[in-house]
Amino acid sequence: MDTSKLIDDRYRLTDTPVSGAMGDVWPAEDMKLRRPVALKFLARRRLRQGGAATDFTDWTVKRFVDEAHAMARINHPHVAQIYDTGEHDGELYIVMEYIRGMPLTSHLKKGPTLTLERTVRWTRHICEGLAAAHACKVLHHDIKPDNIMITHQGGEVKVVDFGLASFADVTQSHTGVGTPLYKAPERWNGTPGSVRSDLYSVGCVLYEMLTGRPPFGSPQDDPMTVGRMHQDKTPAPPSAHRPGVPDQLDSIVRVLLAKEPAHRPRDAEAVAEVMRDIHSTLDFEDPADAPGTANLPDIATGGARHSERIRDLDRLIFELQLRFGPDDRTVIKTRAEHAELTGRSGDVRGAAALYNRLGRDCQDFFGPYDAQALKAFTGVARWIRRSDGQ
Rank of each mutant, 00 (worst) to 15 (best):
D161V: 10
G163A: 12
L164F: 00
L164P: 10
S166V: 15
F167H: 15
A168V: 02
D169I: 07
H174K: 07
H174G: 02
G176Y: 10
G178P: 04
P180V: 03
P180L: 06
P180A: 05
L181Q: 12
A184H: 12
A184V: 09
P185F: 12
P185M: 13
E186P: 11
R187H: 00
G190I: 12
T191D: 12
S194T: 14
V195T: 13
S197C: 08
D198N: 09
D198A: 04
L199I: 06
L199G: 02
Y200I: 07
S201I: 08
S201G: 10
S201R: 07
V202E: 01
C204E: 06
C204D: 11
V205C: 04
Y207K: 03
Y207P: 06
G212P: 02
G212C: 09
G212S: 04
R213P: 00
P214A: 10
P214C: 08
P219F: 10
D221K: 10
D222K: 13
P223N: 06
M224K: 13
V226N: 06
H230K: 11
Q231R: 15
Q231M: 15
D232L: 14
P235W: 09
P235I: 10
P235Q: 04
P235A: 11
A236Y: 00
A236R: 14
P237I: 11
P238W: 10
S239V: 14
S239M: 05
S239E: 13
S239W: 01
A240Q: 15
A240N: 11
A240I: 09
H241N: 01
V245E: 05
V245L: 01
D247E: 14
Q248G: 07
L249T: 06
D250R: 03
R254W: 00
R254G: 04
V255C: 13
K259I: 10
K259D: 08
E260M: 14
E260A: 15
E260V: 14
E260C: 08
E260Q: 15
P261G: 08
P261K: 06
A262H: 05
H263Y: 05
P265L: 07
P265H: 03
R266A: 13
D267S: 08
D267I: 04
A268G: 03
A270K: 01
V271G: 06
V271E: 02
E273Y: 00
E273S: 13
